[in-house]
Design a protein around this nucleic acid. Structure first.
Length: 233
DNA sequence: CCATTAAGCGACA
DNA sequence: TGTCGCTTAATGG
């Protein structure tokens, strides 16, 4: 295997404050790995043996309920760390990580998390910031789930997707990985039928456009309107 | 307002 | 040809 190029990491937050030598050392201990769409990077409850940096593609973080239903907790985009259980003091992964598209990730043994945070300035801070940002996002969603109706929740989920993992096209902003109605329903705590009906209705109004596994938002502003809590009743 | 059940259709491998 | 993604209608909580 060819040596990894240092430029892979130099702009990324966890490494941006590090020198070339330090990045070299970190890269030399990394194991690159490909995952096909749908592949599981690690399973919920598994011993947390490695942490990862997503180099390319998208990963979704999924929890399983007692009844065996999937709940998508959040999505990870390229450049972000994931599986950093050690930063949370966990011995096991609290959720599963599934490749939402074909992806490439770097993996390190979890014990190196402690080495890295102790040795490299900025690495720990960046890791905790990542954790903090995700906590905040999850908290927002908890409030959403408790207070908003399904249409608002789905609109919000779609807005987050195009904001964080959208690809601009001439006709609008498209979710940059294959996504089904089932996926959206697992993000919003509803059924694929309800998502299907909502998307059909939005499509008739020209707000979105979708083919199988593709969703494009043509009128983000309209979606923002829909995402706001209903005024009455 | 929304979940569930059921039926049917086209895309895809 | 079988599976998957999607749509729609009907029903009921």
């Amino acid at each position: 295997m060819r040596k990894l190029d240092e430029s892979l990491l130099t702009h990324l937050p966890p490494f941006s404050e590090l020198g070339r030598e330090q990045i070299r050392e970190i890269l030399d201990r990394a194991t690159p790995q490909r995952y096909d769409t749908g592949d599981t990077v690690f399973h919920e409850g598994e011993e947390a043996g490695r942490f990862f940096l997503l180099l390319d593609g998208y990963v979704r973080v999924v929890r399983m309920t007692a009844e065996g239903e999937h709940v998508t907790v959040l999505h990870i985009a390229a450049g972000q760390l994931f599986g950093i259980a050690a930063a949370l003091g966990n011995e096991r992964y609290p959720a599963s990580a599934v490749a939402a598209s074909d992806t490439i990730a770097l993996g390190w043994p979890m014990r190196l998390w402690h080495d890295f945070t102790a040795t490299y300035p900025g690495f720990a801070a960046s890791g905790y910031k990542t954790v903090g940002n995700r906590m905040e996002e999850i908290h927002k969603r908890v409030v959403e789930m408790a207070t908003q109706q399904v249409e608002q929740r789905v609109a919000n989920a779609l807005l987050r997707l195009i904001t964080q993992m959208g690809r601009r096209t001439d006709a609008g902003i498209e979710v940059d990985f294959p996504i089904t109605r089932q996926d959206l329903s697992e993000m919003t705590g509803t059924t694929l039928h309800t998502v299907s009906r909502l998307l059909s209705a939005w499509e008739k109004r020209g707000i979105v456009e979708s083919k199988r596994k593709h969703i494009m938002v043509r009128e983000p502003h309209q979606l923002v309107m829909l995402a706001e809590p209903a005024v009455s009743s």
